[in-house]
Amino acid sequence: MMKLQNFFKFFLFTFFITFSYTSFSKENINDNVKKLTLELRCMTCQNQSVYDSDSDFAKDIKKIVKEKFKEGLNEKEIKDFLTERYGEYILFKPYFSSKNLLLWLFPFVLLVISMLVFIRNLKKN
């Protein structure tokens, strides 16, 4: 009984974490445009994404993104193109790069460390 219980608990934890990285959905250009423009800042608005905004700037960007997708560029290439033009300010989700290492690793490093400390205390008991 105890074993089952423990297994069940572990199962629950791993289940969701592994599951969150698999996806089965099909994607087309419009979905791609939506997904990408949601991650871009409308630079003439107050904290609004390009996708949500109706400003002229946002309309232009949407058009550019769509064209680039049609030309066969992938998400990364389009982002590179846009950041070259407008700076990294346009990305709501900064690149995972050496410069932004602190931003991206901090939460997860903290998580791992605190879990290790927790497990160590657990064993002591």
Binding site: L38, E39, E88, I90, F108
Partner: peptide, 17 residues
Amino acid sequence: TRVSVGGPYFNSTVLPI
């Protein structure tokens, strides 16, 4: 330099935590 940290960042860090 100016950078933005917005919704997509928080969604992909805070939620999994």
